[in-house]
């Protein structure tokens, strides 16, 4: 059914939202338009019916006397002012402070966390003329520090240190290296350090703690430790193929006691290891180190290391 064009004005008319002129015009219209007249009548009738029905219910269900009776009989008294509002302000203030703190924390740099408790240290020679314990290594040759600790390095090396995170850094120069209380300790060091990737790392260099960070390069010399003699490494017998492997003992992180011992007698220990190397090589053994697989066997050490002629 086609609606009257004036139909849209019905609701406005019922809600008294038409201007005086519009209202007068519409009143004239409904005198001649039965459709609009019926619609207006219907809306008005529905409103009245609703109002009357609710009024009737209200008259039977009003509770004014009950309310006042309860207030009188229970001797209810208004609670002190601001009780509720005080809590509202308290929570609003607390919320505001928390919000400020949360937003501020987004813009503040996170607390710097250095990790350094190394559980695995793999070292890769980067150049042909790099040496381990005085023996030449091939470029890209990789070994586990645990198998040679404390190790004497000279050349250019890439370190992959595994702790709770992994850090990769490069060293160019000569250094001795061992683990001390879980940290990597570089001694007799004349080298340049550069963190390539991964987490920042705490290391000890010539007795001082250093934070090895991304994009930072630092050099150090062993001049300050001039009381130590240069290592005298004997590598007799290293002219034949050798196989490197790890042992449980070698893989284990050294304890602090061990580290202390190591730091106090690193020179002597290095000498004993090099002596051991010479002795084993001298007896014709194919192994540089005991090949018995241990529980902490390093997967990187499965490939035999050919130290001959490199």
């Amino acid at each position: 059914m086609k609606r009257c064009p004036e139909n849209d004005k019905i609701l406005l008319f019922c809600e008294h939202e038409l201007s005086e002129v519009e209202r007068a015009q519409f009143e004239l219209h409904i005198q001649t338009c039965s459709e609009c007249r019926e619609e207006v009548k219907q809306i008005s009738s529905d409103d009245s019916l609703l109002r009357e029905g609710v009024e009737e219910a209200f008259s039977r269900h009003r509770v004014t006397s009950r309310i006042m009776q309860q207030i009188r009989s229970e001797k209810i008294e208004p609670l002190p002012a601001n009780n509720q509002r005080g809590w509202r302000y308290f929570w609003l203030t607390a919320f505001a402070l928390l919000t400020v703190f949360a937003v501020a924390s987004l813009y503040m740099p996170a607390a710097v966390k250095y990790h350094g408790r190394a559980t695995g240290v793999m070292i890769q020679a980067l150049t042909d003329n790099s040496t381990l314990q005085g023996a030449h290594l091939a470029a890209d040759q990789t070994f586990d520090l645990a198998a040679f600790e404390p190790a004497a390095l000279d050349g250019c090396f890439l370190f992959t240190v595994t702790a709770d995170q992994t850090s990769v850094f490069k060293i160019s120069g000569s250094t001795g290296i061992r683990r001390s209380e879980g940290l990597l300790e570089f001694f007799d060091t004349t080298a340049t350090f550069e963190l390539i990737s991964g987490a920042r790392l705490t290391i000890i260099v010539n007795g001082k703690r250093q934070q090895l960070e991304r994009k930072t390069v630092f050099s150090t010399t062993a001049a300050a430790i001039d009381d130590l003699q240069p290592d005298a490494v004997s590598l007799a017998g290293l002219d034949r193929p050798l196989t490197a492997s790890t042992t449980a003992e070698a893989d284990a992180i050294i304890t602090s006691d061990e580290a202390d011992t190591a730091s106090s007698a690193d020179q002597a220990e290095l000498a004993s290891i090099t002596t051991g190397l010479s002795a084993e090589a001298g007896t014709g053994s194919d192994s540089l180190i005991d090949q018995t697989p241990g529980s902490g066997k390093n997967p990187f050490a499965d490939e035999p290391l050919d130290l001959n002629g490199n």
Binding site: I67, I71, I76, E77, P78, L79, P80, N82, Q84, R85
Partner: peptide
């Protein structure tokens, strides 16, 4: 209404 009466002092 009873609750309103009780907290009337807190009414803004």
């Amino acid at each position: 209404f009873v609750k309103a009466f009780r907290h009337l002092a807190s009414f803004d």
